[in-house]
Write a protein that binds this DNA or RNA. Sequence first.
DNA 1: GCTGCTAACTAAATCGTTAAAGATAACCAC
DNA 2: GTGGTTATCTTTAACGATTTAGTTAGCAGC
Lengths: 351, 351
Amino acid sequence: MPTSRRTTLKDLARELGVSTATVSNAFNRPDQLSPKLREHILSEARRLGYRGPDAKARSLRTGRSRIIAVVLAESLTYSLNDAVASELLSGVAEVLDAHGHTLLLLSGRQHEAQVNGSSSIADGFIVYGLMPSLMLLEELPLPGQRPLVAVDFDLEGQPTVHVDDEPACYAIARHALKTPPRRPAVINLRLTKHPCNARIASDQELLPADRTITRARLAGFHQAFAEHAIDPASVPMWNIEENTHEVCAPVVAEILDLPDEERPDLLLCMSDRIALTVVTLAEQRGLRIPEDLRVTGFDGIAEGQYRAPRLTTVRQDSVEKGRIAARMVLGLEPAEPRLLRTELLIGDSCP
Amino acid sequence: MPTSRRTTLKDLARELGVSTATVSNAFNRPDQLSPKLREHILSEARRLGYRGPDAKARSLRTGRSRIIAVVLAESLTYSLNDAVASELLSGVAEVLDAHGHTLLLLSGRQHEAQVNGSSSIADGFIVYGLMPSLMLLEELPLPGQRPLVAVDFDLEGQPTVHVDDEPACYAIARHALKTPPRRPAVINLRLTKHPCNARIASDQELLPADRTITRARLAGFHQAFAEHAIDPASVPMWNIEENTHEVCAPVVAEILDLPDEERPDLLLCMSDRIALTVVTLAEQRGLRIPEDLRVTGFDGIAEGQYRAPRLTTVRQDSVEKGRIAARMVLGLEPAEPRLLRTELLIGDSCP
DNA sequence: GCTGCTAACTAAATCGTTAAAGATAACCAC
DNA sequence: GTGGTTATCTTTAACGATTTAGTTAGCAGC
C-alpha cells in the first residue's frame, strides 16, 4: 500500500469494488443508492481514513466552493481591530455559518495578483468600503458572473447596503446645535487626497468622488449649520486617516491643547473611536464633558456605551448590515440597494 | 462566440494558436518562453477578459491553494468581537498577507461536515483555543499531511504557541496580595462541564482536561495564595462562559450587589473584558477603585489602558502569537513548541 | 556534415471529483 | 410474454489548470 498519498474517492471505490459515482453518491445523494450500501461505504470510508470528497476537486467540478470572500478596503490587520468592521464581519459570518458557507478574508491592500488569485475560488463577494480609486474591482470577476454586494460605498450596477448617513448626521448636528456652541469643529475620517492627520482647510484637499460616506455625512452637518446660520467654512476641520486610538490621539491632543479661547467646545466626530479618544484625552486634561466640551460620535459601538460619559452618537447596525449583505450574496434576498435606518443615541457626552 | 461561459486558459490558447502549456507558462514561469510571446499572451489575455488561472483548478492540480484556515473554538460571531481573538487574527493576517496567502475563517462550532468540507482546501491550519473535547480534530487532516499549529492549548504531536500562564498568574496574584485582601475572589472563564454563569464551588465542576490555560492560571493563583496562607477553598469563584460585556454584566452585578460584609475587595479576573465590566459596574454603584475594590485582569487589551483606572493586568502579545503561528504554519520558522513571555502591567485598578 | 546542446514550444497525462446518460435486473400490469 | 417503470449501480466525459516528457529548430564546435 502506497504510504503517504491521501486516500481518494477512487481508492475507496476500488477497495470496495464499486464505481466512483456510487461512492460520490453515498456522500452527496443518499437517495441514489440503497441505504445498506451507503452505510457500508461510509463505514469503510471511516475505516480507511477517507474524510469525504476533496474540496478542491469538488469545487472545480461543481463550480461552487461554499466560500464567500469579504474584500476589505483596509489591511486585514486594521480591519480586524476596528469595532465597526468586526461587527460587519460578525453579521456576515453569522449568516454564512447558518447556511454552510465559510468566510475568506481578502484585503484591498493586498497585491492584486493575490487577490485575483484567491478570489476566483469564491462563490461571491462582499466588498466593504472600498475606495473606487483603488481600482481593485478590475481584478474582481465581471459583474454577472458571480454575485457581488457593495457595503458602504456605491458601485455602479451592483447591489449596495448603506445607512442613511446624510439624514443621520443632519439629525445629530441639529441636536448638538440646540445648545449653541461658540466654537464647533469637525473631526473627519479619511477624506483627503493624501494621507494626512492634521487640520485641513474645510474645502480643499477633499477627494472628489471617493469616500462617498464621509461626504454624505459632511453634507448632513452642513445642512444643520445652515439652519443656525453657521458658515461651514468657519468651522475648522481636522482629518484622521485611520480609525485607531493610536492615530487619533496626537490629533486630538493637538486640538485639546489649543489655548482656551481657540479650543472647540463642540466636536462632531466621524466615528465613536475618535469621540472616545476625545473623551479619554479630555479627562486626562481635566476638561469636563459635557460642560467644557461636548462630543458626538458615529457608529454606536458598544465600547462607547459602557462607561460614563456615554457617547451621544448615531447608532448604525453594522451587524445587520453584514447579515443583509451576506443574505444578498447568497441569493436569500433580492440583491437590490438597501438603505438602513440609523438611530440617534443621546448620551451624556452631548446631552 | 458562446456568450456566458468564462474564458479559460484553453480558449486563450486556441485563440492564440499556442498550446495550453505555453499560456500556463506565461503566467507561472516567465523563463520558459520568449519574452515577446509572453507579452503577447498577457496582452491578449487582458483583451479577452481572461483574469489568470482559475484558483480552483490550479489548487486541484498543484495541491496548494495559498489559503490558511484559522479554526476558532468559539463562533465566528463571538471571536470577531473579542479583542484577544481579533488580535491573534491580526497577527496571522499580517504574516499571511506578506507572504501571499489568504485567510479562511472556520469555527469549531460549525457543523462538522462544513468544517471538513471546506477545510480540505486549506494548505495549513491554525487552531485556536479549541477544547479537545470538541473532537473537531478528528475532522481535520491527519497529522503530517498538512501543517497544523495549535494556539493556547495542547495538542499532542503538534507544535503549539502558548504564553506562560501559570507564572504570569502567580506574579499578578503575588502583586495583588502584597496588600492583604480581606475577601479575595476569582472570576473565571469557561472551565465548567456545563455552561454556567454563576458562582461555582472552587473544586467541583471543573473540567478534567479541557481548558488547560484556565487551569494553569488557577494554579498560578493558588501558588500565591499558598504563600499567604490563604486556603484556595476559601476563595469564592464565579464562572463566566463567554467573554462579552453582556454575559459578564449579570454575574458581576451579582457579586457587587452582595452585602458589604460579603462583597469581595479583590477580584482576580481571567480576562480584561471581565475586569472592565467590574470597573464599569463598580463605578455605577459608587464603589471606588482601588480603595473599595481592587481588580486585576488578564490579556492587556488596549481598551483596558485607555481610560482611568488603567487595569492592572498581565499583558500577552496576542498579535505576536498570531504572527508566530502563521510563520510556523507557512514553514518560515521551525514548528516547535513556543512559550511566549508575558508582562505584568501595574495599573491603577490594583496598584 | 555530424554531433551535441540549448531555447522554445507542444502533446498528453493527471489532479479528485460530479453529472449526464446508460446498463441491468426486478417488478408490475395486462 | 411484452412493454413500461423503478431502483440501483456503472460508464464516461468533463471541470480548468499544471507538469512531465518529448519534439523541433537553431547554432556552435570540430
